[in-house]
Design a protein around this nucleic acid. Sequence first.
RNA 1: GUGCGAUUAGUUCAGUUGGUAGAGCACCAGAUUGUGGUUCUGGGUGUCGUGGGUUCGAGCCCCACAUCGCACC
Length: 376
Amino acid sequence: MKFVRTAIDPHSAARCGELTTDHGVIRIPIFMPVGTVGSVKGVYHKELKEDIGAEIILGNTYHLYLRPGLDILRQAGGLHRFENWDRPILTDSGGFQVFSLARMRKITPEGCRFQSHIDGSRHLFTPENNVDTQRIIGADIMMALDECCPGDADYRYAEKSLTLTQGWLERYAARFKETEPLYGYEQTFFPIIQGCVYPDLRTRATEHALRFAEVGIAIGGLAVGEPTEKMYEMLERVCPLIPQERARYLMGVGTPANILEGIARGVDMFDCVMPTRNGRNGMLFTWNGVLNMRNAKWEDDFSELDPAGTSFVDHSYSKAYLRHLFIAGEMMAAMIATEHNLAFYLDLVRQSRLHIEKGDFAFWKEKVLPRITSRL
RNA sequence: GUGCGAUUAGUUCAGUUGGUAGAGCACCAGAUUGUGGUUCUGGGUGUCGUGGGUUCGAGCCCCACAUCGCACC
């Protein structure tokens, strides 16, 4: 697996590049749809590939480990074959889910103990068994096990948490080295930079994590409650410390504006539940602004969903029809909105790549930001 | 036809000894950042069936009518 930078924007830290995996090439900057339990909710793989243009999707170790479980995943021959997706997959380690979902979690230097949110059963994630689990899932890109520090944590907690994450990272890397892929294609792993909103901790975390970053590195613990400006500050602190030949992945982010600002600061990869989850709840992201499709004002607006949209749904259905589907609780509503939002997010990064290559990304970004953040 | 019961928000209903109404759902609006098809926050949208009467004052008490339900002819 290798990462090559192919273009840089002269007026920002934005760059283009290619991440080559055994399942194909990922052009960066990229947005990665979230497919937690082996499904990008409400979207066929055919649409993901042909209509939306997804080049890589996520899976989640926590969720897949609990259901269907490792035995089934091993029998299936890994997640790619199980869900019939032949492009790259990235799996989150599950550290964040233990933080956000599991009951009664207990984090110790050994690992994290937690109770399943499904049936209350007790489990332990260690860096070692987390590598083994992600080997069984078979992700092209595996994420190190970390503790996601809340955005409002005080310095003492953040430092202690970082030390723990760093210890886990060393053990994770050692286990990774002594194990092999199970399904005949290459796997890599990204270490994760923590450090909350404290610049010196972020610097320390970056220097440490870089020792384990062979292809790419992730920035975690952002967009978890801290002000957006703090997130940008941290990116400005961290990205310049990362060599140009490493892919940078900002975990869990974000809004369309977050993504453009992230790209401008040197981030290459993004994932977020926003286009899918918010889509299921009626929020549409477009080049002209954000729409809440449940709003009564769309009731008799029979114009096409998004005249500037790239997806077939944008020109097949009207706003009034989609609002009707949402109000009626029809599952097609969630499907159409998800399809639209993912197509928009992928178009957002596609346009970004084009403007980076043209060298006017920074100007273009400033031009489109007011539009895409406005509310319709 | 007779008797009994009911009629309050879009809906299902609550409403104390008479002091001009409230809850769930729906609806309207906002939030959502390494996904539990969620969850959270805010908003009451009303000719208290109609018409009279008693009273300082009626959703509540009295009369008539209307509609619905049940029972009996």
